[in-house]
Design a protein around this nucleic acid. Structure first.
Lengths: 350, 350
DNA sequence: CGCAGTTTGGCAACCGGTTGACAAAATCGT
DNA sequence: ACGATTTTGTCAACCGGTTGCCAAACTGCG
């Protein structure tokens, strides 16, 4: 009619791909209304006459219309995207966190952006900086950032941290007590009186937290407890503690995580020690593969999937509050850890 | 000067967050130039007078300017984001793929969006539809979609599939021959003449491919081979094949993947069979945890990290070509599989 | 039938960049 | 010194939605 029919315009993008996707303007033309009416029909149900709304929906379907998220994000400032920042994608601890997060996000109509810091605080800050502009909120999983950096991020966008507690920032942390107490009781019942804790990285908030609870609860069961570490939270990290474990004279070990537990178990078996005959081992987290070993690993399960889910839900709440929603109290269903008894714990038989 | 100083405008978003981020307009005002000049200075190095460019960069730094990706995406149509669509995040096979992909993407200045289809073709199509508008390209990892759907997606955006071959679509697939031949030779040298293949899901392209290569190469080594399956690619799927494996009279088994191999190994051991004394088992992929078992699993390693990396790089190439770049030949470094001999294979000792 | 009150839909500005066209300024050749 | 050429920066339109404001149309009611 006016300038051009826009049939097969050779303009700009879509160089060799099929026609560029339909816009609300196309719909408007087809339905004979104003673009703004289309926008309202599509995003404000009820604002528009039912009859017109139907017509618009029909046109939209006919043109196979998809809303352009960028175009919406620009004026509204909301991207419907959440960022998940992990220390190390290949650490199995994260698998379930990611899955839980993905579920919660997609349930809420949000998309997940993933970034990895490769265990480096610097790279993490960089990654956060990079994705921050395109997300509505951010979840940090076992972050390597210092409190100050975390606070600064939290000031810019809704932010939730997993496995860490920072004053003034929402943190999702499992309830460590139940699992640890069950483990302690379990070991006590098996007759162990001297146990060790294999601690993780020196700067790990989680490792400290676990150690402190052990420290607070072991004595009342008549058990002595020693810390061995800090160590790298890996198979080798666990393996390397063997000599110190043997030297310490303990009969049972709780490890910072399953990887260390498995590493220690392997080293022990290779050196002729039987598990659990001569040494009982308890892991932490119940990661994928912790039941592959012989004996299968007894471990304190962390509800990682739930944690991921909760973190996202909390982030969504924060976003909501930010845009004027009621600051409804955080859903405080507990996230208890729990002992999973398998084969790596038992009485001393030797 | 003119209308308002825009100092602390209470407008719109940023309800309780600090000042909204600086824009090129702020920079322009500060540097005393036109916004478009700022845009050029920032994205077209050299187009602008060095002196001015410096001034602009200084202003940008002072205001702590971050480019708004949405705003850029709108006119250019490029989001600098890539989508990765997985069947199941918790399948350890994907860990390394994701990591490789993340690396390649962030190296190329791209961000990764993650989506999961939960092993359902329908959910996968839905997820693809959802993220397609916000990505420049898409990578499908062991997709559950049918060829037709894949082609349709490929027509809309640059697309690469992993572990599948579809006519007219770029696929990244490891070179299965080397690993399989090494495994066959290894088993032959150990004296095995009757082997079985535990196949995966009936509709798995990868399972078929593996089976066909086995079929083509076993006879010439004087080995007979039978297929047992199809089965679910899980621990239980492997476990369930035990009776058929025993009944078949084979002395060695190659499984579709490590999970099935481990499941079978466990079932065998529980029923009193020794591995590898009475039954040799070879897995596929070398996933995380495949060395946790006793004996550790011999397996054909797939270079998953490389595959993820390659898939992203290829996607980036496609994007490049689409926007007029030279269709430079796909980098064809092979992705060979390789046998990793551990403890689950040996001579029949019984 | 007339008037207040409510729907309904259009207009236009805006989000924050990008880019083609063009004019002013600087550079060059002779 | 002057016209031709190149460099540099401005103008304005555009990407595809959203939304405040307003007027037209419709409703209800006395």
């Amino acid at each position: 009619m006016s300038t051009e029919e826009n049939g097969e315009s050779v303009t700009a993008r879509g160089t060799r791909r099929g026609k560029s996707p339909a816009t609300i303007y196309d719909i408007a033309k087809l339905a004979g209304v104003n673009p703004s009416t289309v926008s309202r029909a599509l995003s404000k149900p009820g604002r528009i006459n039912v009859k017109t709304e139907e017509r618009i929906h029909a046109a939209a379907k006919e043109l196979n219309y998809r809303l352009n998220p960028m175009a919406r994000a620009l004026p509204t400032g909301r991207t419907n995207t959440l960022g998940l920042l992990l220390a190390d994608i290949t650490n199995p601890m994260f698998f379930n966190v990611v899955r839980g997060a993905e579920r919660a996000a997609s349930l809420g109509g949000y998309t997940l952006i993933l970034a990895e810091s490769q265990e480096s605080g610097e790279r993490e800050a960089e990654a956060a900086e990079r994705i921050l502009p395109s997300v509505d909120g951010l979840v940090l999983v076992t972050t390597r950032l210092v409190d100050q950096e975390i606070l600064e991020l939290a000031e810019r966008k809704p932010l939730v941290v997993i496995n860490r507690e920072v004053d003034g920032v929402d943190g999702i942390v499992p309830d460590l007590e139940p699992g640890i107490n069950q483990a302690l009781t379990h070991l006590a019942e098996l007759g162990h009186t001297r146990v060790a804790f294999l601690s993780g990285p020196a700067n790990s908030w989680m490792s400290c937290a676990r150690w402190e609870i052990l420290l607070a609860n072991a004595p009342e069961r008549g058990m002595s407890i020693v810390e061995i570490g800090p160590g790298s939270p890996t198979l080798d990290g666990g393996r390397d503690t063997l000599s110190r474990v043997v030297a310490s004279g303990v009969t049972a070990v709780l490890a910072y995580n399953d990887l260390m537990a498995i590493g220690l178990m392997r080293a022990a078996q290779e050196s002729g020690l039987t598990v659990p005959g001569q040494l009982s081992i308890v892991g932490f987290d119940d990661i994928f593969g912790s039941d592959f070993t012989s004996p299968q690993l007894s471990t304190i399960r962390t509800p990682l999937g739930l944690i991921g889910e909760r973190a996202i839900r909390r982030t969504l709440e924060l976003i909501d509050e930010d845009s004027g929603g009621v600051p409804r109290g955080i859903s405080n269903v507990p996230l208890p850890t729990e002992l999973v008894v398998r084969g790596s714990t038992g009485r001393i038989t030797d």
